[in-house]
């Protein structure tokens, strides 16, 4: 198809932002060679690495402490838990993780009017197939007085109703992501900066991640995703996504290059804040320290990296 040109043919220098490297194919090649030559060694090594990581997740996190007295700070513990536990050691770099960032988002549901501008901006930014039938962000129209998902409406027509409140849900980039634990082939993992990513060239399409996700955040491309040629974002994969699972990436192609996410940029009410928890002056760090916040399905101990205010 005309719009899903292979990544290797992209004019990288012209289209990719500074610092962006598209090295997935190189990674796959190296893994393929490694598997072919030392297949017997790769699997046990990978398994051992993962189990060791899982055991030492909190104790030996390579991330530096957030602040003095980190152990007494519950937020610091969350950040520490969001360490390399699920990081298989073979990242697919959209850009190099810049260093110490720990990305998070805070959404003020009092400010959200349910206009879905974040949804549309996300669709355009992330090359979500116009024929795919899903969006990364799902805005729920909620009944007042309760957080009752079962009575929420997803396909509401009229936004901004004063007798409702609006609840945007997307990938939470959990510190303990069930999707990462559930992927049978390690095609999805957590990056050092907390972003959960998917390798579209490795995903076998079993959809177990969609089963394990308590937030309905993952979606499957049942069709080959189509985007009008003029609207294709060259920084984001498109053709590779056919028959694989995809989800919110915290706009990794933007946030690793100094920009904020498309949804934050598009929100007309400023209900969304995105930033680095390790930066005490970031919006999210200040909000988490000064406001009463909550997280969706906190009882599942997935430690979501999206907090809600309101």
């Amino acid at each position: 198809m005309s719009q899903d040109f292979p990544r290797d043919e992209r004019p990288e220098g012209a289209t990719a932002p500074e610092g962006t490297t598209f090295s997935r194919r190189h990674f796959l090649t190296s893994v393929g060679i490694a598997a072919g030559v030392v297949a017997a060694g790769v699997v046990p090594a990978a398994l051992m690495a993962q189990s060791a990581n899982a055991q030492d997740a909190t104790a030996t996190s390579s991330e530096p402490p957030v602040a003095p007295g980190a152990s007494a700070d519950p937020l610091a513990e969350i950040i520490a838990a969001d360490g390399p536990a699920n990081y298989p050691g073979h990242p697919v770099h959209y850009a190099k993780p810049a260093g110490k960032e720990k990305w998070a988002m805070v959404i003020d549901v009092r400010a959200c009017v349910g206009c879905r501008k974040c949804v549309y901006a996300c669709v355009e930014e992330n090359n979500i197939g116009r024929n795919s039938g899903f969006t990364y962000i799902q805005v729920l129209e909620m009944e007042p007085g309760k957080i009752d998902l079962e009575s929420a409406v997803l396909d509401y027509d009229e936004a901004g109703r004063p007798d409702k409140w609006y609840f945007p849900v997307q990938c939470m980039h959990c510190a303990h992501p069930p999707c990462v634990y559930g992927c049978p082939v390690q095609a999805t993992w957590k990056e050092p900066d907390g972003i959960v990513l998917i390798d579209y060239n490795k995903c076998i399409g079993c959809r177990n991640c969609m089963i394990t996700c308590p937030y309905g955040a993952r979606h499957f491309n049942w069709v080959r995703p189509e985007v009008p040629a003029a609207e294709i974002n060259p920084k984001v994969p498109l053709g590779e996504k056919a028959w694989t699972a995809e989800k919110c990436t915290f706009c990794v192609q933007r946030t690793r290059n100094g920009q904020t996410t498309a949804c934050v940029e598009a929100c007309p009410t400023g209900a969304r804040k995105f930033g680095d928890l390790n930066d005490p002056n970031s919006d999210v760090a200040i909000l988490l320290k000064t406001r009463r916040v909550w997280r969706l399905k906190e009882e599942y101990s997935t430690e979501p990296m999206i907090w809600y205010v309101g």
Binding site: V31, A35, A39, V42, V43, A46, L47, Q50, S51, A54, P88, Y181, G182, C183, P184, V185, Q186, A187, K202, C203, I204, G205, C206, N208, W243
Partner: peptide
Amino acid sequence: TDLVRVWRIFWFVVTPNISAIFVYTG
């Protein structure tokens, strides 16, 4: 037959995820 790209199943052998129950039942 449920997998559209069934040949990718080799990842199941090359990089199995020990926390995925699918690996055990399969």
